[in-house]
Design a protein around this nucleic acid. Structure first.
Ligand code: MN
Ligand code: MN
Ligand code: MN
Ligand code: MN
Lengths: 217, 217
DNA sequence: GGAATGCTTTAGACATATCTAAATTTTCAG
DNA sequence: CTGAAAATTTAGATATGTCTAAAGCATTCC
């Protein structure tokens, strides 16, 4: 049985190992968990003792099979709760992440099974992220970042990588909603910013910082 | 802001102060929170520093107004989540208490407001307990214990005082459901056990231990 | 190849919440 | 009213998770 804190570290390791190739560094974990490197080292020793991570001093860290299974369970719960908060309670997609950060740690297998059924076995959360299977596998999506799309291409906005309230409210104001079709009109060579046309015909400016957090297919 | 643990102590103090007149004792709290008296004393010092309880060494403890307000907020959340688990997720009333013990600590005012609306502002939880108001008042019910009912009286089962799975499953097997009408047929002078007739016409035996946990009106 | 630099780990503390054992205070019985 | 029993508090420890400061590796840049 893991504490909240251990679950959060497992999730953080999983998340960082997707972002870059190779093992996850102590400093990266310290930044993501908003702690100090020394605290991370302590926790890595503990997770290693429990055989949830592969860890050699100074060499970075990687989840074991069991560690990944647990991380995906937490992510599954997080995303199911986000669906609940949006679909059933009527929260905006910009307001659910912090509450789901708490709800994801509620311990009850039966609860997850019933919640999943009540929500009609959703495949994606309100941010377009795929919901891991009960068995602990993360579905593949094959989405690309909007920054990789060529001028003239029509694509559909499928997911966002950033969950902060500020970012999501910015998208709302820009009329960029999940599922909408967008066309890349121009790419600025200097700052890689984009001009895109939305379904409604309006033209929206997207800095590289915004575009790299938008996933399309 | 209170920790989970502090919230649980506040709830425990509230609950015990209903059970008996006068201040709550250290030992009673130790038993209810499944800790030792020494641990309770430590926590009482802390809650007293925060002015959530009135506490004088060796003299027992009592909630301040602020302490009671917080305790009732926790109880409100607990009972709303129990309603959700039964009404929306289809849990049995015998399976929800432990999950609600976790959910009651989720911190988000907005969440409670929306959950309450989603459930249609319920007045009672699945065990018949009244749900405290958003302002922090506990509604009066005026229920009596079944042990105080005279032979021949017709009463309606309104609530249960004990929430354990075993007790509630026993009631299910006996056909005693919330809202049902029961008639006291005989009271055994020796052990105070009862024979009651239910709506369906069947006769059910209830030991004093069972009857004192049944509230009727 | 050998510093200098930057990560990372260790050392030593602190806060929370718990425990056992011992000391203290209150209560109650004779 | 007084001494024993019961209840409560204090003393000293443990476990978790965090921190700062100092020391130990690793990489890289002459
Ligand atoms: Mn999220
Ligand atoms: Mn999400
Ligand atoms: Mn309950
Ligand atoms: Mn209840």
């Amino acid at each position: 049985m893991q504490s909240f804190t251990e679950e959060n570290y497992l999730k953080a390791i999983y998340s960082l190992s997707l972002r870059h190739e190779g093992d996850v560094s102590t400093n990266a974990l310290a930044e993501l968990t908003a702690t100090k490197a020394a605290s991370v080292t302590d926790m890595l020793r503990k997770l290693s003792d429990k055989e949830l991570i592969h860890y050699k001093k100074y060499q970075g860290v990687r989840l074991t099979e069991e560690g990944e299974r647990l991380a995906l369970q937490v992510i599954r719960r997080h995303r199911l709760w986000e669906v609940f908060l949006v679909e059933k309670l009527g929260f905006g997609w910009d307001a659910v992440h912090d509450i789901a950060e708490q709800l994801e740690h509620i311990r009850s297998d039966e609860l997850v099974v019933r919640l999943d059924g009540y929500l009609d076995h959703p495949q994606f959360d309100p941010h377009g992220d795929p919901i891991p299977t009960p068995a602990g596998k993360m579905p593949e999506t094959g989405y690309r970042k909007l920054t990789e799309v060529g001028v003239g291409e029509d694509v559909r906005l499928m997911a966002v990588l950033e969950h902060s309230t500020e970012f999501l409210q910015h998208l709302d104001r820009s009329g960029l909603t999940l599922g909408c079709i967008i066309t890349v009109k121009t790419v600025n060579d200097f700052d890689k910013s984009l001009l895109v046309r939305t379904e409604t015909g309006s033209t929206v400016f997207a800095s590289q910082d915004v575009a790299k957090n938008l996933l399309v297919s």
